[in-house]
Simulated assay, not measured.
Amino acid sequence: MTSNDTPHAPHPHVGMWVTADGHIRQELLPNGRYDEARGNRRSAYTGRYTVTGDHIDYVDDTGFTATGDVRDGILYHEHLVLHREDDRRAREGRRGSRG
């Protein structure tokens, strides 16, 4: 069996995005789905998303819609400000290494 489908690299915004306090964690999955945890509540919001450039349109599984924009490596999702999880950890490490 052969296929003409070429695997696509994931969009550059795919991955885990986290608020500064770590309370909200939004994972943009490579399959166009997202999963958002809030505090101890896993999968508090799930749905699909589409990306146009640095703009993200979200449609929650309940039909609720929202938008977001990535600017200078920060995801502004409605009233939330989220950073890549790895970037947040790096900042925390720098703060913890001060003497």
Rank of each mutant, 00 (worst) to 15 (best):
T2F: 09
S3T: 10
N4F: 15
N4Y: 10
N4R: 15
D5P: 01
D5S: 06
T6K: 03
P7V: 12
P7Q: 14
H8V: 07
P12N: 04
G15R: 00
G15Y: 06
W17V: 05
W17Q: 13
A20S: 14
G22H: 04
G22K: 07
H23D: 12
H23K: 14
E27Q: 09
E27N: 11
L29R: 04
L29I: 04
L29D: 00
P30M: 13
G32I: 03
G32M: 07
R33E: 10
E36D: 09
A37N: 14
A37H: 05
R38Y: 14
R38G: 04
R41T: 09
S43A: 10
A44Q: 13
A44G: 13
Y45N: 06
T46F: 08
T50F: 03
H55Q: 15
I56Q: 01
I56C: 07
I56H: 00
I56A: 03
D60F: 00
D60Y: 00
D60A: 04
D60H: 06
T62H: 00
G63W: 01
F64R: 04
F64C: 04
G68D: 06
D69N: 13
V70H: 09
R71Y: 10
I74L: 07
Y76I: 04
E78P: 01
H79N: 12
V81I: 10
E85D: 03
D86L: 03
R88I: 05
R89F: 15
A90S: 15
R91W: 09
R94A: 11
R94L: 12
R94W: 11
R95L: 14
R95K: 09
R95S: 08
S97C: 13
G99K: 09
G99S: 15
